[in-house]
Nucleic acid binder design. Structure first.
Length: 481
RNA sequence: GCCGCUGUAGCUCAGUAGGUCAGAGCAUCCGGCUGUUAACCGGACGGUCAUCGGUUCGAAUCCGAUCAGCGGCGCCA
């Protein structure tokens, strides 16, 4: 078989052979295995990540590829700062040391042009980063048009050009940290033998506040054929998790959730990434302990992998280093007293708004658990037998004013009690169908929680807005780019 | 659902007691500079002042509506 050969319905052998050829030609950079089909594809030579050069690990002569980050020139010397995914480095292109066309191109190429460059890495204090490359060859792979983002930036302009702003060092740093958080979450629960499962995004459950649901339907064409489709977008895997739990006992998910709230704040998105866990036979305080371990694991992962990114974002790393478990725990009632002693005027049943959360957390060094919220907070949480006006549940508030990142608790597991709670909330048990059904066949105590991943990343990055830590933020007023 | 704000050149903005008010810096283009740090010097290009309507002799400026976006509250993760 060879590349370009028509692919017929393949046997497994044919497929693996194709794959082998593909890998050899495109991804294997060993000197005796060169690209044959597409010689212009800049993958046949060895290229050095910029980070390695900045660390002084490079050889006498290096070859890099990347994008022009900044550029300025005089008649005989051009300074071209090049970035790749690992860093930026200044390259000097001297008229005397390269081909005439290379020098002309170096002067001409605009910001974000993609380039290939060969030269000698030199330690030089005049260069940002302490190292620069003295070019012997400068090749433009693609001349960029004028880049719309310049030094004058506004939030709105950066959001309108998010597809381009993703190249910025800020976004790159935040997204690397985000990736670490996702991985740390998965690793932690996988290590504890929890099973990752997926729940649907299309739902018809009426179980959550209807005012914040997105409706999904399709256009007329299918109506003609008599088909109809109508659903909501999921706000949480919660109900599905409780069903799935009976087979797997300990489960988690990582998925988007959708809230049609018209929230316009630094901690809200209409589409956010929801990390959720549900576990059979587990009590609230046990789940809280596991969550604490998870948060600590996430923090230590970020500290060990993303120090450079945290520094670039201007994060005070010592704040993260000083976070210690166990976290403080307060009952809702105690928090009420504390807030009132700080000048608030709250009575039992009042919610903590952002002002209250901020007052509570802005001077904290570690996250804070609040437990035993009033019964009105949710019908699916279990009332505390020792204090029936409150629930066996908890929120976790991030310090430094970031506020709630986790909400969770022990679920009502008795079918009769659940029906009673639903009625107390003025809801109709009839509309809960299968959710009540799953309680009828060997119900067990269980606990779970939801973690706002984007909020967590925002806190760890020290970001002033949640939209800075997700590639394409979605709000009620923005679905493009 | 509630409160507030913005819209003038590609970008960031100045300009309103209504009358040389179409302006600056950056970007781009042309020219100059051998060490710049989103450099510097000279020149050029660039706008129906968001849209529609009203008031007026005259509107970027005053009024109304519409559109788009931003910040915050409530709610939540």
């Amino acid at each position: 078989m060879h590349l370009g050969q028509e692919i017929t319905p393949n046997t497994f052998l044919q497929y693996t052979e194709l794959k082998r050829i593909f890998i050899r030609n495109y991804y294997d950079c060993a000197p005796n295995r060169r690209v044959m089909e597409y010689p212009e594809f800049p993958n046949s030579e060895e290229y050095t990540p910029i980070q390695e050069i900045l660390q002084g690990k490079a050889k006498d002569s290096v070859r890099i590829r990347g994008w022009i980050y900044r550029t300025r020139s005089s008649g005989k010397l051009a300074f071209v700062v090049v970035r790749d995914s690992t860093g930026i480095i200044q390259c000097t292109v001297s008229r005397e040391k390269v081909e005439e066309t290379d020098f002309a191109n170096a002067r001409k190429a605009l910001i974000e042009s993609s380039i290939l460059l060969e030269g000698e890495p030199v330690k030089d204090d005049r260069a940002p980063g302490g190292w620069e490359i003295r070019a012997s060859k400068f090749e433009v792979f693609h001349f960029a048009e004028t880049f719309p983002i310049t030094k004058d930036q506004s939030d709105e302009h950066l959001l309108n050009n998010r597809h381009l702003w993703l190249r910025s060092r800020n976004m790159v740093a935040a997204l690397k940290i985000r990736s670490t958080v996702f991985k740390a979450f998965r690793d932690y629960w996988t290590e504890l033998d929890f099973t990752e499962i997926q729940s649907p995004s299309f739902t018809t459950s009426a179980c959550e506040g209807g005012s914040t649901l997105f409706n999904v339907s399709i256009d007329d064409e299918n109506e003609k054929s008599g088909q109809k489709f109508y659903a909501h977008l999921s706000q949480s895997w919660q109900l599905y998790a409780e069903a799935t739990m009976f087979g797997l006992e300990n489960i988690f998910t990582l998925a988007p959730s959708f809230r049609a709230e018209k929230s316009r704040t630094r901690r809200h998105l209409t589409e956010f990434w929801h990390a959720e866990v549900e576990s059979a036979w587990l009590h609230n305080h046990q789940m809280m302990n596991l969550e604490e371990g998870m948060i600590m694991h996430i923090i230590s992962s970020v500290l060990s992998k993303n120090r450079a990114e945290l520094e670039f974002l201007g994060r005070d790393i010592s704040v993260l280093e000083n976070i210690k478990a166990p976290f403080d725990k307060m009952k809702y009632e105690e928090v009420l007293d504390k807030l009132n002693s700080m000048g608030f005027d709250l009575v039992w049943g009042d919610d903590f708004g952002y002002k209250e959360e901020k007052a509570l957390t802005q001077d904290l060094k570690t996250p804070l658990y609040i437990t035993n919220f009033p019964k009105e907070k949710g019908f699916y949480h279990r009332p505390d037998p020792s204090d029936p006006k409150s629930l066996v549940c908890h929120d976790l508030l991030a310090p430094e004013g970031y506020g709630e990142i986790i909400g969770g608790g022990e679920r009502v597991w008795s079918p009769d009690e659940l029906v009673e709670r639903i009625r107390e909330e003025g809801l109709d048990p009839e509309s809960y169908g299968w959710y009540l059904d799953i309680r009828k066949f060997g119900s067990v105590p269980h606990s779970g929680f939801g973690l706002g991943i984007d909020r967590t990343v925002s806190w760890l990055c020290g970001s002033d807005h949640i939209k800075h830590v997700i590639p394409f933020p979605r709000t009620m007023r923005r679905t493009t780019p």
